[in-house]
């Protein structure tokens, strides 16, 4: 970063002569120090996982949940400054609730991502604020069923309701990642935080775009990737936090929930086993050399 110290990096909303907004780039640095967070879009749902670094022995284990629920069917996991992540989630909840107020139906994941992208972008525009020090992954399941309008107390006539197309499909799992610049993309597999490079290359191996990975496999892969991405040398201990969202007919009934304890522990057991396996392979290779 050659332009550091030239004065163009001291205030938000200021371009440097070569067209960069340094404060946003510095915000990205804050993200790069956070624990790894990933999201996987599976055939029949979404998995969100987080490497929660244990900074003190005195922390209550299993408490301090950091993957948040928005409305009922969406989850947000973020990496970077914790309080900024909570601000982000709080805004997302407000957006979801005001959408419901207006449209009497849950907000689609794509619309939430769009609105949050705009919100985050607004924090790059003014010198009176600083950008968000977080990259957030939003996962959601837009219901494929025909939902009643909020407050509906009975069904309409059984015939003659207009505007419906036979066999038209809608809903399904969606995944988005929003960066401090406000930029966002839809993903099959998203990763951010310290271990994002390793996590990304692992996600790429899963061929997620083919849409074959099931939710349960996704849970196991997510656990494995977090374990691989964890840096044993720099950070000693971590807790794995995982949530998932399935269809209305799946295990979470369209809701965003914690992955059940038994399944998470099973996934962690497999992840540890896979890691040990890797080490053995490496040792074997060395032996052969």
């Amino acid at each position: 970063m050659t332009s550091i110290g030239t004065g163009y990096d001291l205030s938000n909303s200021v371009f440097s002569p070569d067209g960069r907004n340094f404060q946003v780039e510095y915000a990205v640095k804050a993200v790069e120090n956070g624990g790894t967070a990933i999201g996987i879009r599976c055939k029949d749902g979404i998995v969100l996982a987080l490497e929660k670094l244990v900074t003190s022995k005195l922390l209550k284990s299993g408490a301090n949940k950091r993957i948040a629920t928005v409305d009922r069917n969406m989850g947000i996991v973020s990496s970077g400054l914790l309080p900024d992540g909570r601000h982000f989630v709080s805004r997302a909840r407000d957006e979801a609730s005001s959408w419901r107020n207006l449209y009497k139906a849950p907000i689609p994941t794509s619309s939430l991502a769009d609105r949050m992208g705009s919100y985050v972008q607004a924090y790059t525009l003014y010198s009176s604020v600083r950008p968000f020090g977080v990259t957030a992954i939003i996962g959601g399941w837009d219901s494929e069923a025909e939902l009643p309008v909020d407050g509906q107390v009975g069904a309409g006539p059984g015939v003659g309701s207009g505007g419906k197309k036979d066999g038209a499909k809608h809903g399904g799992p969606y995944l988005y990642m929003i960066e401090p610049s406000g930029l966002y993309w839809g993903y099959y597999g998203a990763a951010t935080g310290k271990g994002r490079q390793i996590a990304k290359s692992e996600l790429e191996k899963l061929n997620l775009s083919e849409g074959e990975l099931t939710l349960e496999e996704g849970v196991k892969e997510a656990a494995r990737i977090i374990y691989i991405a964890h840096d044993d040398n720099k950070d000693k201990e971590f807790e794995l936090e995982m949530t998932w969202i399935s269809s209305t007919t799946g295990p979470t009934k369209g809701r965003h929930e914690d992955v059940p304890k038994e399944l998470r522990e099973e996934a962690e057991r497999l992840a540890k086993k896979a890691l040990e396996g890797d080490d053995e392979d490496e040792e074997e290779e060395k032996m052969q050399e």
């Binding site: 609730s97 419901r100 107020n101 009497k104 909020d150 407050g151 509906q152 107390v153």
Partner: peptide, 9 residues
């Protein structure tokens, strides 16, 4: 229906 939406939120 209004109250139902209120309880829902």
């Amino acid at each position: 229906q209004y109250l139902d939406r209120l309880l829902n939120s």
